[in-house]
């Protein structure tokens, strides 16, 4: 399992795709970050905030908004990285190498998944350096930053599990990418249909947005965490099942 994970991570960095994604994301978030900090420092905003003792602080405005943006951009980025997990193996006919090796299907799927998560972890680490730089001139609410980080990690993990499953369905990486993107976008806007009243229904529960928002605001609700863990487990099990059934 770890062999596959390590190989997956290595081959990600061997491809220009991973580097360009890291570069582009870094640039975009640097821009967003700079704009947010600039906005926060404007005299009228400062004056406004000073008048509201329980108004949003630096963490909420800069880190919260930054992570919110990240969720949208990741919606686009995750399909690009998950598409190659199994589709590419199928297309270049390398899957028999893994299937005839003495490893279980579970290890193959988990290995690939963990490899990709390793990449995302590195990516998050680099991106989080920016908000941490605020410590040079201010203070951060670490509880809220940690909750936000947990949220973004869980969101990424759930996105990746869905993308991994979809890439087991097809031998065309682009088809996998566009289907993953569609599915993720749908999951994000699923709650719009119920945007009518106070009470929230099953669609809102299924939608990813709500669960993410509360973590961004520093609200750790085990219900939200369980939601993400369920999504991850469901799609990983489906992937294992799908690959096993393919042999029959």
């Amino acid at each position: 399992m770890w062999t596959i994970a390590a190989k997956e991570l290595r081959s990600l960095f061997l491809s220009p795709l991973a580097w360009s994604i890291l570069g582009v994301l870094q640039f975009i978030f640097a821009w967003v970050f700079a704009v947010l900090v600039h906005w926060f420092l404007q005299p009228d905003i400062q004056a406004n905030l000073a008048n509201h003792p329980d108004g949003p602080g630096l963490t909420e405005i800069v880190v919260g908004n930054l992570l919110d943006w990240m969720a949208i951009v990741l919606l686009l980025v995750v399909p690009l990285l998950t598409m190659r997990l199994f589709s590419e193996e199928k297309r270049s006919k390398t899957l028999p190498l893994l299937l005839s090796a003495p490893i279980s299907m579970t290890s193959i799927v988990l290995g690939k998944y963990l490899g990709l998560m390793g990449f995302f972890f590195i990516m998050l680490l680099i991106l989080m350096l920016m908000p941490l730089s605020l410590l040079l001139g201010g203070t951060l609410d670490f509880g809220q930053v940690a909750a936000g980080l947990l949220g973004v990690t869980l969101l990424l993990a759930a996105f990746s599990a869905i993308g991994l499953f979809i890439s087991t369905l097809t031998a065309y990486p682009t088809v996998a990418a566009i289907s993953t993107f569609g599915t993720l976008l749908l999951l994000r806007i699923l709650d719009w249909a119920e945007n009518t009243g106070e009470q929230t229904g099953v669609l809102t529960y299924l939608s990813m947005t709500q669960h993410y928002q509360s973590l961004l605001h520093g609200l750790f609700d085990s219900q939200d965490v369980v939601y993400y863990l369920l999504v991850i487990a469901l799609f990983l099990i489906l992937s294992i099942h799908r690959l096993t059934m393919e042999r029959i």
């Binding site: 062999t3 061997l14 893994l98 090796a101």
Partner: peptide
């Protein structure tokens, strides 16, 4: 197999090392 399962982007040594670990 009929189509050799090779990762095009890897070096020969690297690939064989991966296979050895896999097995």
């Amino acid at each position: 197999p009929e189509h050799p399962p090779l990762y095009q982007e890897m070096q020969v040594i690297e690939f064989l090392k991966f296979c050895a670990k896999l097995h």
